[in-house]
């Protein structure tokens, strides 16, 4: 399987962003068309997604009915964090959902088709699925965030909005990186779906302030499995605007780094697949 490597890495002409955007649009339309043919499934899945969010919200309400605050974070600040995490988790849900299919495709050998296209394998693979259900989560997240925002009384200035967008994008990079890396394990371990399931479960802890962790575990959940960056550190840029911690300022760079590393790891898997599959 040397063709794959050759086409993708040496002879490929450099393509601009516009080229990739137009390809993405075309693939996206196909995906949506095929989804619309299973309308019942689409409706039920959307309901399922809303239920998941509602249940998370109910858990949250029950928790705060019993306990007034967590580590100095009151109800509205926690809601802010919750909404922030929901929005930050939307890109991974919408654009990178195909990661969940990776292991089946690798195992069955269907993955090879991605290697034969003269475009970036990672891009092509991810562009195949756009998960519409993620938009429900986005709406839920925005609603929660706005509600918390108004109740805390954060002033709305252009600078704050810029910061919000920047740090939301940053936060989303971390979750994408985690899921990419988790999915890519399937290139080495057969049936590694449980790695993804576990990582996906850890994300439930992103909505709590990470200063609850101590010692080694704080380092683990900050730099190894970076769930502390999925909501906590980025949201401090808005919540603690007078006293922003250094790690928050590092977050954008770190996010790019994590994303880049996960991408490299993923592509390393593809390369390994080239050598074994035939």
């Amino acid at each position: 399987m040397s063709e794959c490597t050759t086409i993708n890495e040496s002879k490929r002409p450099r393509r601009g962003l516009r080229f990739y955007a137009s390809i993405y649009r075309k693939i996206l339309v196909q995906d949506l068309k095929s989804k619309m043919s299973y309308r019942a499934d689409f409706v039920i899945s959307t309901i399922g997604m809303i239920m998941t969010n509602l249940s998370g919200f109910v858990t949250f309400l029950i928790l705060f009915k019993n306990f007034p605050s967590i580590n100095g974070w009151d109800y509205h600040h926690m809601l802010f964090l919750y909404g922030f995490s929901l929005i930050a988790l939307t890109p991974v849900q919408c654009f990178f959902d195909n990661n969940w299919n990776l292991r089946f495709q690798v195992q069955s050998g269907d993955f090879i088709k991605y290697c034969f296209r003269p475009i970036n394998v990672f891009f092509y693979f991810m562009s195949e699925v756009f998960d519409v259900k993620g938009l429900g989560q986005l709406a839920f997240g925005i609603g929660t965030l706005v509600y918390a925002w108004v109740n805390i009384g954060i002033p709305v200035t252009p600078w704050v909005i810029v910061k919000l967008v920047l740090f939301l994008l940053t936060a989303s990079l971390f979750m994408i990186a985690i899921m990419n890396a988790a999915a890519a394990t399937c290139f080495w371990i057969i049936g590694s779906g449980y790695v993804m399931v576990i990582m996906f479960r850890f994300k439930d802890f992103a909505k709590y302030p990470s200063n609850i962790f101590h010692g080694v575990f704080r380092i683990l959940f900050t730099f190894v499995i970076p769930i502390a960056f999925v909501a906590y550190y980025p949201s401090l840029a808005i919540l603690e605007s007078d006293n922003i911690p250094v790690l928050t300022w590092c977050a954008p760079a770190l996010g790019l780094l994590f994303f880049y590393l996960s991408y490299k790891f993923w592509m390393l898997g593809v390369k390994k697949y080239d050598f074994t599959g035939s």
Partner: peptide, 26 residues
């Protein structure tokens, strides 16, 4: 003919109402 959707509804409902995500005592 919808597996993911039905399954996620089931999982969510069971985990919440069975006390697995937060003890029923609360």
């Amino acid at each position: 003919e919808s597996t993911w959707g039905i399954n996620i509804v089931k999982e969510t409902v069971v985990l919440l109402l069975s006390g697995a995500s937060i003890p029923l005592a609360f």
